[in-house]
Design a protein around this nucleic acid. Structure first.
Lengths: 103, 103
DNA sequence: ACCGTTGCTACGTAATTTGTAGCACAAACG
DNA sequence: CGTTTGTGCTACAAATTACGTAGCAACGGT
């Protein structure tokens, strides 16, 4: 099973990041971990994705050092992951404004 | 051809937004439009995706009122799209720190 | 008429995601 | 001990999505 690189392949950090985050469920998983650690099945139920893809995305996020597994409590954001989340928090407020604009 | 809703279906704005942005190439397209309008084929070449999917994503982004087509200059961000981009700009700086942390 | 550019579509193939079932392991229960 | 429960995770076929190439129709310029 060859591991393929998808996305831009430019190697620029922003492109690597956009490629990572621009995969189905990735943003959502980070979002669901924003407050407290979650178990594998909790995440699965929350987002409604198959265990296969949840596991795949978690593996990618762990490799990216944004998420880690603490066996005592479950999956949680790393320090880096929390930093990233902080950048995304304004999205919450903005999304409501956006939804109104959509009518 | 029935249009299916994917993602959380909770209808919460943040979930709609994360679902939209968490699709392949969506974030990337917004990013490529950050400075100036781009033509369909320019976008295609820049991100290296098939015209089929570029068109699909552009249609979604247009429906979400984040991107619009000005026939004189090409695709560009709407006012809403620019607001969203502003929220994402810090990602650029952060991504470089992140890349270093990955080693 | 001809050419280049525009946005976009058709279509067969490849890759990804889904849904369901289930594994191995550990701790708790009876 | 035997069973149950919870844990992370995997197998596998089916469904969905993306890819890659070719090409269309409309328009403007030459």
């Amino acid at each position: 099973m060859v591991k393929r690189v998808r996305g831009s392949q430019t190697g620029r950090p922003i492109m690597r990041l956009l490629d990572l985050l621009g995969r189905r469920w990735t943003l959502r998983i980070v979002w669901e971990l924003r407050e407290e650690p979650k178990r594998f099945r909790d995440l699965q139920d929350l987002i409604g994705a198959s265990p296969t893809i949840v596991n795949t995305r978690l593996a990618e996020l762990r490799e990216a050092k944004l998420v880690e597994l603490d066996e005592a409590v479950g999956y949680r954001l790393t320090a880096l992951g929390k930093e990233l989340l902080l950048l995304f928090l304004p999205l919450h407020t903005w999304s409501e404004k956006w939804a109104k604009a959509l009518g």
